[in-house]
Simulated scan of single mutants.
Amino acid sequence: MIILFAPSEGKRKGGECPPLQHDSFLFPQMYQKRMEIVAQYEAVIAEGEQEKLCELFGVKDPKEYERYRLPFLKAPTMRAIERYDGVAYDYLDFPSLSSDAQSYIERHVILFSNLFGPIGAGDCIPDYKVKQGSKIGSCVPEKEYKKDFSSVLDEKIAGEEILDLRAGFYDKFYTPASRVTTLKFLKEGKVVSHWAKAYRGIVLREAASARIKGIDGLLAMNIEGLVLEKIIETKTKKEIVYNVC
């Protein structure tokens, strides 16, 4: 199966892996396409116009973007699943997983970066910051990646069950050609919004720990704090609804 997962705007600093190279990413044949967008990102930074930088990074204090000035050809990298630092990743707690569970995530999870597009969880990326929904120079990354990468994603995912744990915004990067399974979380009858990130992290952690092979494996799991309420099925989607307790 394939699990689709969202990134986080927060990132951990540093890294011990080499700078970006041709085989750094899933789909190495698309490396140049990514680098065209990266070149625009680095051009905005090099230009140094404060208003554009604050918009790109989603910050108000110019000092906050000093850490992003190091060119990517020199910047150290770390695995994407460890680079991202936010609610979902806190609850996933990747470093504490067993080596088998970590390997499962690296094999099965595709992340959607606001700068690099669809990447493997184990792909090594540098520290960067792009506010969700921001343009990068003249580029609208979600549109560019959807246009250029949908066919290679469809080819990779063909025949696999898909668990889509992304936030809704990341549908703009890729809409799977085949049927997907999504999750919804309810608390006291109301849809959980912000804290849904935490529960997605929990579900991914439990799925990796159990090394599930498909959606039936997910449904068979007893996940602490979540109770299966119902399953809603349409031609394009299976939605699993959990009550948070």
Rank of each mutant, 00 (worst) to 15 (best):
F169A: 11
V152E: 01
E16M: 05
F25W: 06
W195G: 00
K238D: 00
A207F: 06
L186Y: 14
R69K: 15
G58L: 13
I105H: 04
Y84L: 07
D93A: 13
E9Q: 10
E36D: 13
P176M: 08
K197G: 02
R200Y: 12
A101I: 06
V152T: 09
Q102D: 01
R211M: 14
Q40M: 11
A88I: 11
T175S: 15
K238L: 05
S209P: 00
F72C: 04
F112V: 08
K238H: 04
G168M: 07
D61I: 11
R179H: 14
P71T: 07
E64N: 11
R83I: 06
M1F: 13
A46G: 00
S193H: 14
H108A: 10
I110K: 05
Y84R: 05
V44E: 13
R67S: 08
E66Y: 07
D123F: 12
P76E: 03
E106A: 03
E144L: 12
F169S: 08
R69N: 01
Q132L: 11
Y65T: 01
G201T: 08
P71H: 09
I232K: 15
I3G: 05
I119E: 07
K129L: 11
R205A: 06
L26R: 07
W195S: 05
M1L: 09
P28Y: 09
T181P: 10
C17L: 14
S193G: 00
V152R: 03
F185C: 08
A198G: 07
Y84G: 04
D164N: 15
G201R: 07
K230P: 00
G137Q: 09
D93M: 03
Q32M: 11
I45S: 02
L4C: 08
A177T: 02
L26P: 03
S8F: 02
Y84C: 04
S24P: 13
Y128F: 15
V109N: 10
Y89R: 02
F72N: 05
M30Y: 11
D85C: 06
A75M: 11
K172R: 15
I231H: 02
G117L: 12
A46T: 07
Y242V: 03
A210L: 04
P126W: 12
Q102F: 08
V152Y: 02
A208S: 14
Q29Y: 00
K131N: 13
L204A: 04
R12V: 03
S138M: 06
K143M: 12
Y174H: 08
Y174P: 08
